[in-house]
Design a protein around this nucleic acid. Structure first.
Length: 568
RNA sequence: GCGCCCGUAGCUCAACUGGAUAGAGCAUCGGCCUUCUAAGCCGAGGGUUGAAGGUUCGAGUCCUUCCGGGCGCGCCA
């Protein structure tokens, strides 16, 4: 149940009744003593109406119908309305019933690695943030279509295919894609004949030569399988069916430019086909073009993106298209969206949103690289994560806590914790800013980390194991009584609102913050109140709340793409 | 030169988009294991939110100007 929407409607109704216009400005209470929610809208509205804010608040509260929802509605300060929810109301909420009444078709564009090279840390953010938001939207009941816009076309493939041919390369020699790329590049840089043949291969490829296409397909298949291995390791919901590379829009590029021409948007500038839009200026304050076809007839990535957008809206019937792409491409997307609107590719009702993110930095606050200055391979990063996690586990003497965990279970745990820690470190920071990658911080069991949440979850599970209780035998709901119970119940009830917000705005760190807060409220209950050893009534109550908490933690971590061990 | 983003505790990050006394974790200091996982909990210190103006009942958040950092800006993607 969306509590905020419900309260918002009721307050709006009360505003109307007392002749007030404006928003209720409802938000969570900033301090516990203010209750659960606060509405801040009265002060501004009263000001506009020239009325006394405090008296206006009185009138709104008098007109406000929250029977069965709130147990207290107070006025504080200059005209804040503080709302304390009724415990019975909290108990009625099914926390995991989060399906929307108005499902949309949402295309989520994320990951998009360049298949000419191996995946490196630069692909991590797009991949895991996009994956999380796709899962959240799906959880809310939207029709989600994942689009992995892989870089599988372009001049660099001429070089790679020619080198592959020269070396009679098989999948084995492509096992280290990065090394292969470097060798091909080195050859290209100091061998003129090789350069000539590489350019010819590009021409062959673009003109549809069967031999070139066959080699290209072989290369792409091998490279894509490398990606797939990483997706599987990372627990990313992307497969071959989600991949729609640049090459797949090849045949649509000319029609796309034609469509723009017919709309009268195209101008020739130095032989290139350009679109000039009013809002974009270059460094000399002259109109800035979006170039869709080069003077030599070649197309550019703007063209590909427009063709892809035509497909997403025309064929996939998207209501929203979300792009999880590096913040540096902000201008590019602004232009693409503006062209798409001007050209009628996207009507005003369709939401197009660039969901930008910042750069991953090392502890020195510079882009995260090896000592040699190379980008770090994703595969190496994950190896190190698991290795470090397994080290932490042995330090913490996991066998003391759970003596019957054997080596293979411990290895599986290290995997879940290590990979989860890397993903969570990224997901828990504000998407739009750069963030500092710090092994010790992310693998710590203290603070807002994946291991802490996994641990909190396993602690709850162990309650049920130890008490030999099947959670399904418990009643589904309970009315909280003691303070820690109430605080926990209030957070549990808020899950739907939170997911709604994350699905709308695309900030996974809000989900992380929520789960951390939820886990904190649980451990407070756990520390301050006995659960298994409480009297029958309290025991049942607390077990129900514990089970709800564990369910949300498991659900939330799953939406983050992080695995949830039963014990650790 | 123009444009976009950022600057919050010693460090890493929050602050629900204009609300009440700016919050967490790490680090520092002090408490709590004969009852459910101490990988935990409770508490203390630590801030002129880069600076100065402005807008208003109210500003970390909005506007202006500086300072400092990152990124982008015609035929790469």
């Amino acid at each position: 149940m969306k509590i905020k929407a419900l309260l918002g409607e009721r307050i709006q109704a009360a505003f109307q009744e007392v002749g007030l216009s404006g928003e209720s400005l409802l938000q969570h209470a900033s301090r516990p003593e203010f209750g659960d929610y606060q509405a801040n809208g009265v002060m501004a509205a009263a000001k506009r109406a020239g009325r006394n804010p405090r008296e206006t608040a009185q009138a709104v509260v008098a007109a406000l119908d929250l029977d069965g929802i709130a147990k207290a509605v107070d006025i504080a300060g200059p005209g804040f309305i503080n709302i304390t929810l009724d415990e019975g109301f909290l108990a009625e909420i099914e926390p995991l019933a989060v399906q929307t009444a108005t499902p949309q078709t949402v295309v989520v564009d994320y990951s998009g690695p360049n298949l000419a090279k191996e995946m490196h840390v630069g692909h991590l953010r797009s991949t895991i943030i996009g994956d999380c938001i796709a899962r959240v939207l799906e959880r809310l009941g939207h029709r989600v279509i994942r689009q992995n816009h892989v870089g599988d076309w372009g001049t660099q493939f001429g070089m790679l295919l020619t080198y592959m041919q020269d070396k009679a390369a098989d999948s084995n020699s492509l096992a280290d894609l990065e090394a292969f790329y470097r060798l091909a590049k080195a050859r290209f840089d100091d061998d003129e004949d090789f350069q000539r043949r590489s350019r010819q291969t590009v021409v062959d490829l673009q003109s549809g030569s069967p031999t070139a296409l066959e080699q290209w397909a072989r290369f792409i298949a091998i490279s894509a399988s490398h990606c797939q291995q990483l997706y599987d390791r990372l627990g990313i919901d992307l497969g071959p069916d989600d991949a729609r590379g640049e090459s797949s829009f090849n045949d649509d590029l000319a029609p796309t430019v034609n469509a723009l021409t017919q709309r009268g948007l195209i101008e020739l500038s130095d032989g290139a086909k350009c679109i000039f839009l009013d809002d974009f200026k270059n460094k000399d304050n002259e109109p800035l073009p979006v170039i869709v076809q080069k003077s030599d007839g070649g197309y550019l990535y703007a063209t590909t993106d427009l063709a892809a957008l035509r497909y997403r809206i025309g064929d996939l019937r998207a209501d929203r298209v979300l792009y999880f792409v590096d913040a540096r491409q902000a201008l590019h997307f602004k232009q693409i969206f503006a062209v798409a609107r001007a050209a009628g590719i996207a009507s005003q009702e369709i939401v197009l949103a660039h969901m930008p993110f910042g750069t991953m930095l090392g502890k020195d606050n510079k882009p995260f690289k090896t000592r040699q200055g190379d980008l770090i391979k994703l595969a190496d990063l994950l190896d190190e994560a698991v290795e470090r996690a397994s080290l932490v586990l042995s330090e913490k003497e996991v066998q003391v806590k759970n003596p019957d965990i054997d080596d293979s279970e411990a290895a599986a745990l290290a995997d879940m914790i290590g990979i989860g820690a890397v993903k969570y470190a990224d997901l828990s920071k504000n998407r739009t800013s750069d963030y500092v990658f710090d092994w010790d911080q992310m693998l710590s069991f203290e603070g807002n980390t994946a291991p802490y949440l996994q641990y909190a979850h396993s602690r709850i599970r162990s309650l049920f194991t130890r008490g030999e209780i099947n959670p399904n035998d418990l009643p589904a709901r309970t009315v909280p009584v003691d303070d820690p119970e109430r605080r926990l119940a209030a957070a549990i009830a808020n899950y739907h609102d939170l997911l709604e917000q994350v699905g709308q705005e695309g900030y996974p760190h809000h989900l992380c913050g929520y789960l951390y807060d939820l886990a904190g409220r649980f451990t407070q209950l756990y520390e301050h109140c006995p659960i298994l050893n409480a009297d029958q009534e309290a025991r049942t109550r607390r077990l129900i709340l514990s089970h709800q908490t564990a369910s949300i933690l498991a659900d939330g971590l799953t939406l983050l793409g992080i695995r949830v061990p039963d014990r650790m």
